[in-house]
Design a protein around this nucleic acid. Sequence first.
DNA 1: GCATTAACCACAG
DNA 2: CTGTGGTTAATGC
Length: 226
Amino acid sequence: MDTMSCYACLLKSRAAENLGDLELNIMGENCVVVAFEKGETIFKQNALSSNIIYLQTGLVKLIIDGPQRKQILQIKKAPCYLGLPTTMGDKINHYSAVALEPTAACFIDIETFKQLLRMNTNFSYEIILELCKNELDHFHRCVNLVQSQIFGRLAANLLYFANEIYDSDEFDLPLSRNEMADLICTSRETVSRSLNELAEENVIEIQGKHLRITNKDMLRKIKEKG
DNA sequence: GCATTAACCACAG
DNA sequence: CTGTGGTTAATGC
């Protein structure tokens, strides 16, 4: 288990750019980087949480076991912090994180992280900024899920993949139909049918997981109209 | 009533 | 793991 040299890290977070040499040394001595394969769990709901996770590279799903079914809370792309709410907010994790691609994650000791928050206000500011943006995303996602029908929900999430994750209108879905269903709160059958219908309407092209958005304006309209 | 939406089930690649 | 067809329940004209 190597301690990291955060000082020399080329994948530092925006927040960590604000840390001085001394602070980076403190972080480096209390931090390890771990590689995860697709499908591996990075942290698990109900387990004790004692680390802040920083995603250096890769893609992750956050999932929570609800009273009825599994629910995908969010898809997160590196670079970003994971588990700030779940590590700072309680002793145990309220959700799990699973890698969707090969992923590299730094595990930072929670006490060290708190110490840095107190020491360096610019660092703290960037952390708060990330948390706030994240909360706004969640609010919008929540409204979309509650107030839109299937096509609105599907459209919003396809646009999210294109705009926020892949920066391209053509990409491979990182999720199975079943996981897509967990993401937009429906059944896998409905996801299959809806994707095929969007293809019939020439809004997207879909072959297996490969997806291309061919009529983005229409997809936006579908998202807005719900 | 009748139409629409979407879940659940069963079965087949 | 996916796609399809049938059935069913809820909701809205």
